[in-house]
Nucleic acid binder design. Structure first.
Length: 117
DNA sequence: CGGGTGACTCAAA
DNA sequence: TTTTGAGCCACCC
């Protein structure tokens, strides 16, 4: 069941919210699931919106830290408050992060296309 | 209304 | 092999 009758951002939020604890996914995977395969940037933009809302005390319940780029690189860590807040959050869920990159990405990777369809 | 920008990704040179 | 270029489209001047 694809929530295709909602705004792109809204859809991104819904998918991101379904990322299980201790798992991660990529911007591209979410975009692909939403039918916007080449719009990974928009997913990142949506995450930026999540972070903004968080800064305003408006909880969206979207684990933006579980969304990384396709190589498992924490490209968005600079957008979080602390320099390594994103990494800490991931490590607190049992994910090993070294040099801003998730180790054993295949083990943690959660693909909405595979997991939700 | 137009143009620049970006938490990405893929493909070609 | 590494480096560029282009596409994607919402948001902010």
């Amino acid at each position: 069941m694809k929530p295709e009758n909602k705004n792109f951002f809204q859809k991104v939020y819904e998918v991101a919210r379904q990322i299980p604890y201790g798992r991660v996914t990529s911007y591209g995977a979410i975009a692909n699931y939403l039918g916007a395969a080449r719009s990974a940037r928009m997913v990142g933009w949506a995450m930026n919106g999540v972070n903004s809302a968080n800064a305003k005390n408006e909880t969206l319940d979207v684990p933006a830290h579980r969304v990384v780029n396709r190589k498992g690189l924490l490209t968005g860590k600079h957008h979080f408050d602390g320099t390594n807040l994103m990494q800490q959050l991931l490590e607190s869920e049992g994910i090993v992060v070294v040099e801003n990159q998730i180790q054993n990405l295949e083990t943690y990777f959660w693909d909405p296309i595979k997991e939700l369809e």
